[in-house]
Design a protein around this nucleic acid. Sequence first.
DNA 1: CTTGGAATGTCAACAAGGCTGACTTAAAAA
DNA 2: TTTTTAAGTCAGCCTTGTTGACATTCCAAG
Lengths: 170, 170
Amino acid sequence: MEERGHPGLHSGESLLFLTDEQLRKGIEAMFFAYRGFTADPDRILSGMEYGRAHHRAIHFINRSPGTTVNNLLNTLGVTKQSLNRVLRTLIADGLVESRVGEKDKRERHLYLTPEGEALEQRLSDAQRARMRAAYRAAGPEAVAGFRTVLEAMMDPDMRRQYLSLREENT
Amino acid sequence: MEERGHPGLHSGESLLFLTDEQLRKGIEAMFFAYRGFTADPDRILSGMEYGRAHHRAIHFINRSPGTTVNNLLNTLGVTKQSLNRVLRTLIADGLVESRVGEKDKRERHLYLTPEGEALEQRLSDAQRARMRAAYRAAGPEAVAGFRTVLEAMMDPDMRRQYLSLREENT
DNA sequence: CTTGGAATGTCAACAAGGCTGACTTAAAAA
DNA sequence: TTTTTAAGTCAGCCTTGTTGACATTCCAAG
């Protein structure tokens, strides 16, 4: 049934008119929506000694338990020095556990401790609540479109990262 | 025909199942897509003496020429001290002009100079090119859904800001 | 006219979280 | 065994956010 996916020109609706103004509105929508997207976890974390960087690390360690530091580096797109500062505090505070690799002892494998999982829950509950409300308000077709456009906006490397996080569903 | 817009339960498709995993994927999509979204202007600005904060200021001054510092503050959601640092360099470098208000001389009205407009063009051309490619790849229905979900994700104040930027179209 | 409040701007100090560069240690390769 | 590579650490810098204190300028109310 020729789902969207290739951009070619079928039923005369492609090669769509895209005025600069329409594109600008999309850009601004991303800007304002991202503010909302990060607002709830930021609120929770301010007051604790953590920030958005800690949230991201916790999120992806939870997502891929046992991941190595290097994997996490690539996922987050930051330098190892920057990540290290965050990981050190999380490990020192007992939210993350770092285990030396068995096959390759140069690697460290990262896991959330029960305390780390508890914080992850608090943060992602808040973020998911906003997401859920937005999805419900927008409806399933809008949600599908939302995901489609976001995927198309990613750099190919990021998109691969993103897709490889599937595993459990979509 | 009862377009999406209210979340109620019509034709049995609302109250949609939203598993935590689906919501997590949406969260990750936002994260990775936002990286792509900012990548091109960031690349242009690194090497110049400017950063993302300058881009944002330039974008919204271009969008609403003559806006006051206070308006810009509210739009950007930063403190005046933070914005001031950015504006000072842009004004010193001749990219932005600050005119004392005629009615209320306390206010400063901000305009891009021709040089400022030139930089704005370079930056937004790059950002729009990515947006245009994503929109084309995803198709018009996906684009509508994308906008709908992003709007639903904003805080009400941000949504008002966002909508008040329309004027010229949608 | 004077005074209070609003809008703007400045200075200083600080924090978060990016970055680069230099280094240690462990593992792998020569 | 020696060299090279990879992972991780430490030190220091930059951008951009924050607060707080304060000066200036102006409008508007008394």
